[in-house]
């Protein structure tokens, strides 16, 4: 970065801020942001309650509506169901991020499992058949799975480049609404909200599933 370019940028900052203050001459100097009321009479969620059977059912319905496959399984059956699901996905390595629960990982074919330690080059991710992760939260009303890069989720590229994404969700992570989920999430982490497989509305404004992100999204919800 050269001094030559930095100098006018400093001026630009001052000038843009000056212009804003001049443009807002009608705003009283004593006014504080909180003096402009923001009525929050919209729903803050809470129904159905987090982790309830109704919340899980709603999540499953909404995910399925947007083209994800949904598998509701009991805690005892989770590992074997996940193993069968991944075995049935067709060939290719399966990426499993660090921190994925060992009891679930143990059912995956060890010859196919790829770990991201050290970080896999993007070309290798492109050759992988699938990725299996946990989630940070799920939103029932909108059919949304949220990843925050925490244990079992990995960096963002892992869940983006392979063509199949299998998510394991625990019932207690399923919240009803967007406000509840945002309050529970940490904005300092890179977040990805996933609502169904990749899609587009760019051809005649109708929805078509499957563009650049994973074209198959499967959710295993452990109740």
């Amino acid at each position: 970065m050269t001094i030559r370019r930095k100098e006018p940028e400093m001026n630009a900052r001052t000038e843009v801020l000056d212009r804003i203050r001049r443009a807002l001459a009608d705003v009283p100097a004593s006014e504080r942001p909180q003096d402009v009321p923001v009525p929050r009479r919209y729903s803050h969620g809470g129904a159905p309650p987090t982790g309830s059977a109704a919340a899980v059912e709603l999540l499953a319905e909404r995910l399925a509506e947007y083209g994800a496959s949904v598998h509701l399984v009991s805690t005892q059956d989770a590992a074997s169901r996940l193993g069968r699901l991944v075995a049935g996905l067709g060939p290719g390595p399966v990426v499993v991020p660090r921190g994925f629960p060992p009891e679930w990982r143990s059912t995956l074919d060890p010859d196919r499992v790829l770990t991201d330690v050290p970080a896999l080059p993007v070309a290798e991710l492109d050759r992988a058949g699938a990725v299996v992760t946990t989630v940070a939260a799920a939103i029932a009303t909108t059919g949304t799975l949220v990843l925050d890069g925490g244990p079992g989720q990995g960096r963002r590229a892992l869940t983006l480049v392979p063509d199949v994404h299998v998510c394991v969700v625990r019932a207690r992570q399923v919240m009803a609404s967007v406000p509840e989920a945002l309050a529970a999430l940490r904005p300092a982490r890179p977040l990805t909200f996933v609502s169904g497989p990749s899609a587009t509305s760019d051809i005649e404004l109708d929805r078509v599933e499957g563009v650049h992100g994973p074209r198959t999204l499967a959710a295993v919800v452990v109740t």
């Binding site: 909404r62 947007y66 939103i139 009303t141 909108t142 059919g143 949304t144 890069g149 960096r155 963002r156 590229a157 967007v178 904005p187 300092a188 982490r189 890179p190 977040l191 990805t192 909200f193 996933v194 609502s195 169904g196 497989p197 990749s198 899609a199 929805r207 992100g213």
Partner: peptide, 19 residues
């Protein structure tokens, strides 16, 4: 006209291990 669009990304600055 969707309840939620397929992908929303949020990020804060940079991270050593992601992106």
């Amino acid at each position: 006209g969707e309840r939620m669009n397929p992908y929303t990304s949020t990020w804060t600055g940079t991270r050593a291990d992601d992106g």
